[in-house]
């Protein structure tokens, strides 16, 4: 049972910006290593699978396999970066370093801290999206102004998975707990959302289930944008991502209040 008091609506003040700036200052000290980390993993997938499997599968969905997988990697990278930030990094700040405790003794509320962490996770997703986008452009794909739209899309993906991560953060007894989220949520999401192969390849039941996965909707937007065509059903895809983001964020807020405000 969660006491009714924790369900009060989010309290908003502009002081959250100072917490976001705090995280930015830490990140700036480690920015190069952090961006390399953001790029390395998806880049390896893109090159290995793109050129390896691409040799057998010349075209998927009307594009080269490396381009196909590259567009998936943009979304994958935003997803992993924001999840990681909202779980491991936020947990360090909340639990190990007690940074949040210090902040809420100042004239900030826990709601401000949570909002800042959410925005920060989404901001980092934009950074990694931009890094992958740069790689894609260098490899010679995505040469269309529409491609720039993946940056706000990266932010939206970051809001969704950052909020999921904050839910896990609120429940975590320790770092090991986050493995469940990677194994049970993110990995299936990655395999079923059309990153490596089109969703239509799957049995109809699985393909139908994939319609409920936020990453699938992100990829439905990213793939046309990076191949220079306007995506279809933009409102639906954005609405699904945004709805997941808001519901998960409110759940994270309630659970974090219960964890810390006692």
């Amino acid at each position: 049972m969660i006491a009714a008091v924790y369900f009060r609506p989010p309290e908003f003040s502009l002081r959250w910006i100072h917490v976001w700036r705090r995280n930015l200052l830490v990140w700036k000290k480690l920015a190069i290593a952090s961006v390399l980390g953001n790029i390395a993993d998806p880049l390896l997938y893109m090159l290995a699978l793109g050129y390896g499997i691409g040799a057998f599968v010349p075209e998927v969905g009307g594009m080269k396999y490396i381009a196909f997988i590259g567009t998936g990697m943009v979304c994958q990278s935003a997803m992993f970066t924001s999840s990681f930030e909202a779980m491991y990094s936020a947990f360090s700040r909340m639990h190990m370093q007690r940074t949040w405790e210090a902040i809420i003794n100042a004239p900030l509320s826990l709601d401000d801290v949570m909002f800042a962490e959410w925005m920060w996770a989404a901001s980092k997703a934009v950074v990694s999206t931009a890094a992958i986008l740069a790689v894609i452009l260098l490899l010679g794909f995505g040469h269309s102004w529409l491609a720039v739209w993946v940056l706000p899309l990266g932010f939206l993906i970051g809001l969704t998975f950052g909020a999921f991560g904050l839910v896990m953060n609120a429940l975590a007894p320790g770092y090991d707990f986050f493995t469940y989220f990677f194994t049970l949520v993110l990995t299936p999401m990655l395999l079923l959302s059309g990153v490596f192969f089109p969703v239509a390849q799957m049995p109809p039941a699985l393909a139908a289930a994939a319609e409920f996965l936020p990453l699938k909707h992100a990829i439905d937007l990213a793939r046309p944008l990076l191949t220079g065509t306007a995506p279809a059903a933009v409102a639906l895809h954005v609405a699904v991502l945004f709805a997941y983001a808001c519901v998960a964020y409110f759940a994270a807020l309630v659970l974090t209040r219960r964890r810390l405000l006692k």
């Binding site: 100072h18 200052l25 370093q97 210090a102």
Partner: peptide, 18 residues
């Protein structure tokens, strides 16, 4: 609960901003 990633002065500046 000082910020371990910051210097002494940065700790004061960042806290003052709050």
């Amino acid at each position: 609960n000082l910020d371990p990633d910051f210097t002494v002065t940065e700790n004061l500046v960042v806290y003052g901003r709050y």
